[in-house]
Design a binder for these strands. Structure first.
Lengths: 337, 337
DNA sequence: CTGAAAGCGCTTACAG
DNA sequence: CTGAAAGCGCTTACAG
């Protein structure tokens, strides 16, 4: 079995207290003792048990993370950034991938509780009352990253979705488009559903562009729904000249649908996405997108979480980051001729 | 603070031993006591501390996972499957994302050691002697998933990369191609580098097709290198009529390069990829690929790991899974006219 | 069927 | 500067 502190103490000829002291970098240990201990540690290949240590310190250095879909480019990128920041601060991640499975989420939340994680990061906003109650009962710092649940007690790290959607729509309008289709998200989601839709509508109305209900659809942010919804729109009558989809995945789905029907982007239709996922650079034409600062968002989420954990930060509302429009090749100005 | 077993015992008017018994589902507890305990647990919102439990049981139910790149579609899909299988068997994952960072890998391996994980799953084969020694010293079950390191002491869950590459090449040859370009992987990698290259070469030679060195390049499996290498090939002289890239990402990179230069797939060049990542269905034209059973591979990795942990399984060599060619729209037979 | 006691591998006052 | 002892929150023989 693995060596324990007692073995080290015996081999170094000191007490376990002394070993513990050099392990934790305390001063007040004579150099020669320190040396003997360090050699014993090396000889034995000793590494202190975090689990014993956690028990006495009441500190696990663990953060629980709930991701809706690990295989999504957007979430895996945030997660990657979260992991990087956490690990460079001495924290490890317990990752739960819930694929729209409430039972699994509950089960995992319970694992988080049993593992005594010090904080929880959640990346979806569809929490039901039961889950909400459970989370609250944990009395742990909780941060929603990139999403905002209805419950005002939670803190989110997000962009201003309303404004971002407004800007994306305005961009299309300024390109001369007047028939601007919209593929939105789940309207029970505050930020990615409602706020992005409002941004779209208000931009149209501010610019005096008519809202065309036949060009509006709502999906689930995934490629498949973008495809289906665009197909529906095409079947429905005169197509839009431009499309704003509230996720890059749905924008790509729409582009694929157009491709399969022999339509060209951006010649036959301009398309703008949302998120700034890696896909934007991988597809052809490259996808213009209203981007979230994905990497920075993950980092800021963890930095804030760490401060929340050590009591250094008093939350006062959400943390709003800047969005950024990145123009690529999927939009063009309309030329009436 | 969170309730502890002592609080439950007090509230239920029993000993902690009894509480522990109902917690662990032991029989030999009278129904009325059991009821009182369960009520106390509910009232207090008590959840046993896994960390205390781990300490005495010497069992953490933790598996460490090392992923080279979380944002890659291939790895995130395996990871998702690993997570699913682990969690449904009561195990949690400690995930380390090493982005070609040896120091970080070392640091994490040490975290794994300190956290007393019960096994380690690794998804890259570039382990240096130092890492190898460290891993061996851990005396823990280790499984390489989808890759095979040079060290024969480790066990891998993989496909037959040689045969898969052979089959992919043969497919192109049977389509009538004779100028078949190849974008390989890192030749210091046994499976994804060497074996796939051998498969390509031997297929050519078995079918009597000439090996053209000017059509051979080696990349790093990523989109960017596929793009660069194809560009190089195009600049080099007469282009191939078909390309076999040993990762879907590189195949996509190559397709993007062709697109940017106004060349059509599959009319101007057929392209076949390798892996079966989600990208194959997302790009246009859809990418034909020699697929690994990604999801099953993740599951089998964990199933095997669990058996290794409980001593139910005696490893005898690698576990080879079946590959599968999935034809989509990126290849066509050559028509000489 | 139930409980008192020892012990898991550490850290942290406390005393010297 | 160093060590003996208590304690973190559980489980598991052992005894009854």
């Amino acid at each position: 079995m693995a060596a324990k502190i007692k073995d080290v103490a015996k081999r170094a000829g000191v007490s376990v207290t002394t070993v513990s002291r050099v392990l934790n970098g305390e001063k007040y240990v004579k150099d020669d003792l320190k040396e003997r201990v360090n050699r014993a540690i090396k000889d034995l290949g000793y590494a202190p048990s975090q689990i014993a240590r956690s028990l006495v310190r009441k500190k696990t250095n663990l953060i629980g993370v709930i991701v809706p879909d690990l295989t999504s480019s957007f979430y895996s990128t945030i997660l990657s950034s979260i992991e990087e920041t956490a690990s460079s601060n001495g924290y490890s991640l317990l990752v739960c991938n819930i694929i729209e499975n409430i039972d699994k989420e509950f089960k995992y939340l319970n694992v988080f509780k049993e593992m005594r994680v010090e904080g929880i990061i959640i990346m979806h906003e569809k929490i039901n009352p039961e889950i909400r109650t459970f989370i609250n009962s944990l009395q742990l710092p909780v941060i929603f990253s990139s999403v905002k649940p209805a419950d005002q007690n939670f803190i989110s790290v997000i962009i201003d979705d309303y404004k971002a959607a407004y800007d994306a729509t305005a961009y299309l309008i300024e390109l001369g488009h007047e028939r601007i289709g919209f593929i939105g998200g789940d309207m029970s989601d505050i930020t990615s559903g409602q706020n992005r839709y409002s941004g779209y509508r208000n931009a149209l109305s501010d610019y005096g562009v008519k809202l065309l209900y036949e060009l509006i659809r709502f999906g689930d942010y995934k490629v498949g729904s973008g495809y289906e919804l665009m197909n529906e729109m095409l079947l429905g009558g005169e197509p839009p000249t431009a499309l704003f989809a509230v996720s890059d995945d749905m924008a790509l789905g729409a582009m694929n649908c157009l491709y399969d029907r022999g339509l060209k982007v951006p010649d036959d239709m301009s398309v703008i996405g949302f998120d700034g996922s890696q896909l934007t650079e991988l597809v052809r034409p490259r996808l213009t997108s209203m981007e979230q600062p994905i990497h920075e968002m993950g980092k800021l989420t963890v930095d804030t979480m760490l401060k929340l954990i050590d009591g250094t930060y008093q939350p006062n509302g959400d943390i709003i980051m800047d969005h950024r429009m990145v123009v690529r090749d999927s939009c063009k100005s309309i030329t009436k001729d």
